[in-house]
Write a protein that binds this DNA or RNA. Sequence first.
DNA 1: GTGGTCTAGACCACC
DNA 2: GTGGTCTAGACCACA
Lengths: 137, 137, 137, 137
Amino acid sequence: MAVWLQVDPRSPTPVYQQIVDGIKGAVAAGWLKPGDRLPSVRDFAVSLAINHNTVAKAYQELERSRVIEVVRGRGTFVASPGQRPPPDVEERIEKLRDTLRLAWIEAYHLGLVEDEFERMFRQARDDARGGEGKEGL
Amino acid sequence: MAVWLQVDPRSPTPVYQQIVDGIKGAVAAGWLKPGDRLPSVRDFAVSLAINHNTVAKAYQELERSRVIEVVRGRGTFVASPGQRPPPDVEERIEKLRDTLRLAWIEAYHLGLVEDEFERMFRQARDDARGGEGKEGL
Amino acid sequence: MAVWLQVDPRSPTPVYQQIVDGIKGAVAAGWLKPGDRLPSVRDFAVSLAINHNTVAKAYQELERSRVIEVVRGRGTFVASPGQRPPPDVEERIEKLRDTLRLAWIEAYHLGLVEDEFERMFRQARDDARGGEGKEGL
Amino acid sequence: MAVWLQVDPRSPTPVYQQIVDGIKGAVAAGWLKPGDRLPSVRDFAVSLAINHNTVAKAYQELERSRVIEVVRGRGTFVASPGQRPPPDVEERIEKLRDTLRLAWIEAYHLGLVEDEFERMFRQARDDARGGEGKEGL
DNA sequence: GTGGTCTAGACCACC
DNA sequence: GTGGTCTAGACCACA
């Protein structure tokens, strides 16, 4: 419960964003379930070897995304999915649509044919659902 | 040849990246064909109303991606696809794989079911292939 | 006498503040009348499923606001309105004035026109006076 | 253009929130107009005698509220109202409704009669519209 | 020069 | 104990 997330300070992706992605992924894969408690910002910061403000920023973003819920003075918990959808679902879906469009373009320029890319797409689904552990199947 | 690309300085996506995406997209859609000549850095900068350094940075990135070829003294041209694949294809494919994985995760948190997301994926392919004009079919 | 107040630990509003608001609201709506006895700190804490220190803090604040009166050894009672105004009325009125000013500003940024907002203001009066039960009319 | 906002570090309202409120107020009053440029985070921090991170946090919140727009590398500008409403308008309106309800309750406990409070409400509108300067009339 | 990110260390409110 | 805020100072990407 303290090694399931790693962070690369040299990545172009901001560290707080890596945490956001990591936790969203853990929830989607079923490793974290609604009601589960996340480490405190300071504990998490220690185990990730980063500053606690960075974790706090990630938690705030995750709360805005309705992935987690902060209970005053008690801690941070995984939210129940679908209960309160994020306020900007529409925009996020539009952004996701654009991400897919750009992915197709990138695939074209990397010389991937349609079949290959569709296989990659389905493989990515399995990876997102808990690759190694196969929890999502 | 100067209105097919628009750039939004207020977007969170860097302007040079918008140019890269725009040109990659135009090539993938078939609007730009191998051998077509691109505007000069300075002309392009003027018609996009941005700094020419920004266009230069985009062209550099596009050359590294083997999407365009700069012929000193003659101009900049769309490259033939697949001739000289970019040196870091492996890395780029890995990044693309990760993009798709994150997209599945995001879809989960936006409450999209598998069918919806797969439909979105195929729709994105058609959009990437020239949406309105249907050139790519 | 124990279900008319609910508290949400996940709300950004501190729990003790929710209690204060709830009791002030119940008094203003006429659900609680001068002389009515409030639950003991410990009983209230049990029925709200929270720490008793939190209830105690709420009661302290309510006493400073002259909404309730604590009679040592006998219990806690709803005070008679207007008898002993809180010592800092001026300050509180000034704060209320500022709240209204900020509300107008927020209304502007939410695109509400003057009429809409005034209607909302009057509707809020009816809500404060006991919404469903109409006791305050 | 550098003294129109003051900040009180001892206020219970967070400093970044004071900045947010101040700028929202200046826009609502007409002191700041769409397209106007705001001071850079660092300049503003100096003139407010606070840390630049605090200003940055306020700017990010204002951007989420669609009150300002950040143009990469160029600066921060007042947005055109109503163009892109904030993604969570519904929730904000609900919160505003609750604010008004609580204001009525508070008014009751401060011994204000209905007429007085309605006058205060209209006075607050005039204050929000640029009190001293009367720009909004 | 602009905003964005991060660190190290501090204080505070709340429970 | 929890998260939230703030400071001082640093580095980076972008235009």
